[in-house]
Structures are given as structure tokens and as C-alpha cells.
């Protein structure tokens, strides 16, 4: 098999088409196993598609150490349908395998895992709050290896309630880990309701900044043009002695009208009728698996 280095000059229009297919994959996957987390998966689709199909240099011939590659870590592991779809559509494994999601003997576990050796996954996640620490460690390994590629990590906003996140934030600034771009899916929702009701995050930007991070706000995390611009800006700010964060304002359930604007679809799967309604809103661009 050919080793392909992906750092393409995919156009925004092409990225949007890929994101549409990824969203179709997500709703079909969670429908097929009657479980999983469509809301956050749909909301972050544009960000992950932008990373994997344009902004990151990565190798679909998977290597755990990822030397000379940009790395991505998913801390909010429950949006695994999104990651699996993006990985398969990028070429890490056949899209046909998406149909095995959450089923017995599958490599596509409910939450990302390494035991089944699914290409593209470097660490298990799901128990929240751990991914930022892991990403910071991987970023420091890159520095030790004189590897100037970047480490990306995505967290949920509800996840910011975990104390370990703040341990890692403090550490990364203190140790000047400036080869990391940490994004927070700032959709304002968590399982029990709006974050502001469950446990207010307060001024998250000010909190990150007071911990020593450089913070970019992306007000339109579901607009591909804005997402790619934000990532490029973030990349341009790396290597300056400060870790970089993106507060990515997304809409939970984006792309499927009845899933938007509510925490109700955080961890619920559509039935047959709802699936048909969702698919009618999402263009099939790369062929369903």
C-alpha cells in the first residue's frame, strides 16, 4: 500500500461536501446501533473535516508514534462516530467498517480505544478530562524528538468541569508547550442541560488567558470558511512560547434541524423515521458506506 502524506489543498467547497457525507455517516451509525452521541458529533464535523482534509499533515498509513506528523487527540471520546467517519473517509480504514460501530467484535468501540488497533487512534478516551494531559505529553515528546509538527486536541465544554483539565492548562503554560492547539467544543450543552444551568463555566476565555494560554474565539464553528481561517491563525501563533486554545462555538446537532439547539440529542439515536428526515437534509457526496 502506498504511503500517502495528507496535507491537501482541498477547497472550502470540497470540505463542505466531505462534511455533509460525514454527517450522513454519523446519523446512520448511531441509528444502526440505536445508541451513541450524534449531537456533539454533528456539531464538530466541520472542525474535524478541516483538520483531517486540509490543515493537518498526517499519514493514513498509521504509525503510533506519528513522527513528523501532526497528531490529533479526541478528549471528549463520546463523539467517536464523527472521528471514525473522518478517519475512514480520509483513508485510515474502509468506510464499510463504519457499519460495525458499537457492535460486538468491532474495532469501532463506543468510545475510542487502542486495544482493537483501529488505525488513527492513539489513546483511549471517554472518561473525561484526560485528553489534554495526553496531548501535552505528546507535544513534549515532539519537542524532545526535535519534531516540529503540531498536536491538536478537542475537548467538550462540559468537560471543562473536570479538574484535570486545569492541571494540564497550568502545566502547559508553565512549561511553554507552544506546539499544541487545544479546541473546546463550545456548544453550551451537556447531558443534564445547558452548561450555564448545570455548572456555569463563567468566562472561559478569561480563565484560559489567566492560565497563560493564547485564546482564539471562533464564533462560527459550523462555517467552514471561518473554521479553516481560525485553524490557520492558530497555527501561525504556535512556537511563540504559549499554548494555543480555540473556543469553537458550534451548534450541537448542526445539519439536522430537529437535533439542533438542544441537549436532547447528546446521547440519543434517531429511529427509522427520524433517520430518513435527517438524511433528507444531508447531501450524499462520497457515497454512503
Amino acid at each position: 500500500m502506498l504511503i500517502e502524506n495528507v496535507e491537501k489543498t482541498t477547497t472550502v467547497e470540497e470540505l463542505k461536501k466531505i462534511a455533509s457525507q460525514v454527517r450522513r455517516d454519523i446519523v446512520r451509525m448511531v441509528h444502526c446501533c440505536s445508541s451513541g452521541h450524534p449531537g456533539g458529533s454533528l456539531g464538530c464535523a466541520d472542525y474535524l473535516v478541516a483538520l483531517y482534509f486540509r490543515e493537518m499533515k498526517h499519514n493514513t498509513q498509521f504509525n503510533m508514534d506519528g513522527i513528523s506528523e501532526d497528531l490529533f487527540f479526541l478528549s471528549n471520546g463520546h463523539i467517536s462516530p464523527l472521528w471514525y467517519s473522518v478517519l475512514s473517509r480520509a483513508g485510515y480504514f474502509p468506510a464499510s467498517e463504519l457499519g460495525t460501530f458499537r457492535k460486538l467484535n468491532s474495532r469501532l468501540q463506543g468510545h475510542p480505544a487502542t486495544e482493537e488497533h483501529l488505525p488513527g487512534i492513539r489513546i483511549a478516551s471517554g472518561s473525561l478530562g484526560q485528553g489534554l494531559s495526553v496531548a501535552v505529553g505528546a507535544a513534549q515528546a515532539k519537542k524532545l524528538n526535535k519534531d516540529n509538527r503540531l498536536v491538536y486536541v478537542l475537548m467538550g465544554d462540559g468537560e471543562q468541569q473536570e479538574g484535570q483539565v486545569w492541571e494540564a492548562l497550568m502545566y502547559a503554560a508553565h512549561h511553554k508547550v507552544d506546539n499544541i492547539i487545544a479546541a473546546v467544543d463550545y456548544n453550551g450543552q451537556q447531558i443534564d442541560g445547558p452548561c450555564d444551568k448545570v455548572m456555569s463555566l463563567g468566562n472561559l476565555k478569561a480563565k484560559y488567558e489567566s492560565f497563560g494560554w493564547r485564546v482564539l474565539e471562533c464564533a462560527e464553528g459550523n462555517k467552514m470558511e471561518v473554521v479553516t481561517e481560525t485553524i490557520q491563525k492558530a497555527k501561525s501563533l504556535t512556537g511563540q512560547g504559549q499554548p494555543i486554545a480555540i473556543l469553537l462555538k458550534t451548534e450541537m446537532g448542526y445539519g439536522v434541524d430537529y437535533m439542533m439547539g438542544s441537549h436532547k440529542w447528546h446521547g440519543a439515536a434517531p429511529n427509522d423515521e427520524q433517520l430518513a428526515k435527517a438524511l433528507a437534509q444531508l447531501e450524499e457526496t462520497l457515497g454512503d458506506y
Binding site: 503510533m64 508514534d65 506519528g66 513522527i67 497528531l71 487527540f73 492513539r122 489513546i123 478530562g129 484526560q130 485528553g131 489534554l132 494531559s133 495526553v134 496531548a135 501535552v136 505529553g137 505528546a138 507535544a139 513534549q140 515528546a141 515532539k142 524532545l144 524528538n145 519534531d147 479538574g163 484535570q164 492541571e167 494540564a168 502545566y171
Partner: peptide
């Protein structure tokens, strides 16, 4: 907690 996560991350890259 952060130390354990950092250590796990450092292994990615061969440490």
C-alpha cells in the same frame, strides 16, 4: 492526574 496523562502522551513519540 495530569502527570499520568502526560506520561501516557510522552509514550507517543517513543519516550
Amino acid at each position: 492526574a495530569n502527570m499520568i496523562g502526560l506520561a501516557a502522551g510522552l509514550t507517543i513519540g517513543g519516550k
